[in-house]
Design a protein around this nucleic acid. Structure first.
Length: 260
DNA sequence: ATGGTAGAGTGTCTA
């Protein structure tokens, strides 16, 4: 089974590229972030004609998450118990949708950006991650994948220029500690072992021609529970999808192959 | 510190 995650930056403006991506790489399950569409705005026809079912959550033009699957979508959940995600002053957004697809529990996650380190959204980001970790702890014993845009670059090697991000979000010690806490609990970065070398970026800002200059960051991750990690046969970052301008999302898709 | 680009949808907000 082949699963992927992609911050698509509007599913409506890029539906042709989504469908091409699914076909080009023979994807079974695709988790999307920043769909920027309500459920009633989703472009479903083409996806359904390709054999995919869609589960999505989105309530405004900035966020939104979705799961696209051709191996079933069961037990769909939006958010989870005890976790903010709906209706709170800083959180009137859809940032997590989970479902069981082909026997694997997959969560499409769009971690809060944090904006600036003196912004309330920065603290909301850390709190959101803490609650996600609490929610995800019981899932360690199942085949679970936590995938999406984490808005954290966990290592210096994950940033094109650390000096450019001094005193900025995505690289602060508390954010890195929040990410590392998932690994400490037993979740595994299942992509890095299969992408050796320096080309690990998954995101290149639209500004300043950062894609063609390869000034990017690694902020999109697929974390697997131990049993899921044992099934991983390979992984890759579809850099070409990002580099094929114009019309690209600012993020590249990340793909993982599972045995069985 | 600021600004650069892109997408939502017309006012800016978000990233």
């Amino acid at each position: 089974m082949r699963i992927a995650t992609w911050n698509v930056n509007s599913i409506r403006s890029r539906i042709d590229r989504v469908e091409a991506f699914l076909q080009r790489h023979d994807i079974d399950v695709l988790a999307l972030q920043e769909t920027k569409a309500r459920e009633d705005q989703l472009p479903l026809m083409g996806l359904q004609s390709l054999g995919y079912d869609v589960a999505a959550a989105g309530i405004n033009q900035w966020n939104g998450v979705a799961l696209i699957s051709r191996v079933g979508i069961e037990d769909i959940q939006v958010g989870f118990d005890g976790m903010p995600g709906w209706g709170e002053p800083l959180a009137a957004e859809a940032r997590a949708i989970g479902a069981t697809c082909g026997g694997v529990r997959i969560w499409s996650l769009y971690v809060p950006n944090g904006r600036k380190i003196d912004d309330p959204h920065y603290h909301y980001k850390l709190d959101w991650l803490s609650r996600l970790r609490d929610a995800a702890r019981p899932w360690l014993g199942e085949d679970t994948a936590l995938v999406g845009d984490w808005n954290i670059a966990p290592q210096d090697e994950d940033v094109f220029d650390m000096a450019a991000y001094a005193n900025d979000t995505h690289v602060t010690p508390p954010e890195r500690e929040a990410f590392a806490a998932f690994l400490d609990e037993g979740y595994v970065d299942v992509v890095r072992p299969h992408t050796p070398g320096p080309d690990v970026f998954t995101y290149w800002d639209y500004y300043r021609q950062r894609a063609i200059r390869n000034r990017g960051m690694r902020i999109d991750f697929i974390l697997g529970s131990p049993s899921l990690a044992e099934r991983v046969k390979g992984a890759f970052i579809d850099r070409d999808e990002r580099m094929n301008e114009p019309g690209a999302s600012d993020h590249a898709p990340v793909v993982v192959d599972l045995a069985g």
